[in-house]
Simulated scan of single mutants.
Amino acid sequence: MPTEEAVTPVTAFLLVKTTPEWLGLTVQERVDAFTTQVVPAIEAKTTGVRSRFYDTEFYSARVTDVWVWEADDHQAYQLLIDALRETPFWDRYFEVVELLVGTENGYARTYGLDAVATIST
């Protein structure tokens, strides 16, 4: 087992569903809402977070989007969620359907192993 205390990055998969209010906005209004309401709230509360967004409404009626947030550690993740909850994106523009949080290759760190992954070329 590793003896050094390491910071563990956190990955959160937020499964969300758009609301009629969000769909009623124009594309430009949506971009503006994100850049003026979400980004400043996150920047004011935390550092060390990154995001990616995936559209899933083509394949699922229950979940329309998956937001993937990576945080440098658990504290940054908690501050991120606090920041998001203070914006209209949380339960006004989007319904949070599921929150799946994990650490990549946690088993490897726990048992002092190299991570097992696949690579296809």
Rank of each mutant, 00 (worst) to 15 (best):
H74R: 14
V96F: 07
Y77N: 11
D82R: 13
V49C: 08
Q37L: 13
S60L: 01
L84R: 06
A41M: 05
K17N: 15
A76D: 00
T87V: 03
A41I: 06
T47L: 07
K17D: 09
V38I: 09
L25E: 10
E57Y: 15
D82L: 09
L84N: 02
H74E: 12
R92Q: 11
L79N: 15
Q28G: 06
F58N: 14
R50M: 13
R30E: 07
V63C: 09
T35Q: 10
G48N: 06
V38H: 04
P40L: 07
I42W: 06
E86T: 04
D82S: 09
A61T: 12
L23C: 02
W69T: 12
F13Y: 13
L15Y: 11
V66G: 09
R52G: 11
W67N: 09
A76R: 04
T26R: 00
L15F: 11
Q75N: 10
T19R: 09
D73H: 05
F58A: 15
V10W: 10
T87W: 08
R50E: 14
V63I: 13
L15C: 13
A12I: 14
P20V: 00
V27R: 11
T47W: 06
P88H: 04
V10M: 06
L23R: 08
E70F: 00
V38Q: 08
L23W: 08
R85L: 07
T19H: 02
Y59R: 14
G48M: 03
T47C: 00
W69E: 12
R62S: 10
F13W: 13
F58T: 14
I42T: 01
W90F: 01
P9L: 01
Q75V: 08
G24V: 01
R30A: 03
V63L: 02
K45N: 14
L14C: 03
S51Q: 10
Q78F: 02
P20C: 00
E70R: 03
V10R: 05
D73G: 04
Y93P: 02
A71G: 01
R92E: 13
D72E: 12
W90L: 00
P9W: 09
D55F: 11
L84H: 02
R30N: 03
S60M: 04
V66L: 10
D65R: 09
W67V: 10
P40T: 04
V97W: 00
V39G: 01
F58G: 13
V97R: 04
D32N: 12
T35N: 12
E29V: 03
E21Y: 00
T11Y: 15
T11R: 09
D72W: 11
Y77D: 12
V16E: 09
E43A: 11
K17F: 02
D55P: 15
V63D: 05
A41E: 00
T56N: 01
D72R: 13
S60T: 10
D32A: 13
T26D: 02
K45E: 12
R30C: 10
V49E: 03
P88C: 01
K45W: 00
V63R: 05
A44K: 14
A41P: 09
Y59D: 15
D32V: 08
D91F: 08
T56Q: 05
L14F: 15
V27L: 11
Y54F: 14
V66E: 01
E86K: 06
L79H: 14
H74V: 03
V31F: 14
L79T: 05
K45T: 10
P9V: 12
P40W: 08
T36D: 07
E29K: 07
Y93E: 11
L23Y: 07
R50H: 08
